[in-house]
């Protein structure tokens, strides 16, 4: 998958850490670091994180090198 977090929006509520603990972490009080390219197997967890974010800062789409390209 591919993941991006809008860190202007992120306010460190840390819900993504609970939803997907292997792919999101806090360094210090509110510096979010995350896996931008998690394995497809983590899809359910990542989608839980997307939904759990109270400020809607996380965007994720399935990993597909041809995603969005003209055939």
């Amino acid at each position: 998958m591919k993941v991006v977090v809008d860190l202007n929006r992120c306010q460190g509520y840390a819900q993504c850490l609970y939803a997907a603990p292997h792919h999101f972490a806090l360094h210090g009080r509110e510096a979010l670091v995350y896996d931008p390219s998690p394995d497809e197997a983590a899809r359910a967890e990542i989608e839980r994180a997307v939904h759990a974010c109270p400020v809607r800062a996380i965007t994720a789409y399935p990993d597909d090198t041809a995603a969005g390209e003209v055939a």
Partner: peptide
Amino acid sequence: DRPPLSKQVLRGLYSADTTLPRPPGLRAE
């Protein structure tokens, strides 16, 4: 995405692949 490049990517945390997610319906060349 560039912001992680000066931080977690240099540090070797997670993947270095920061390709931005693209929606399947983009239909761009």
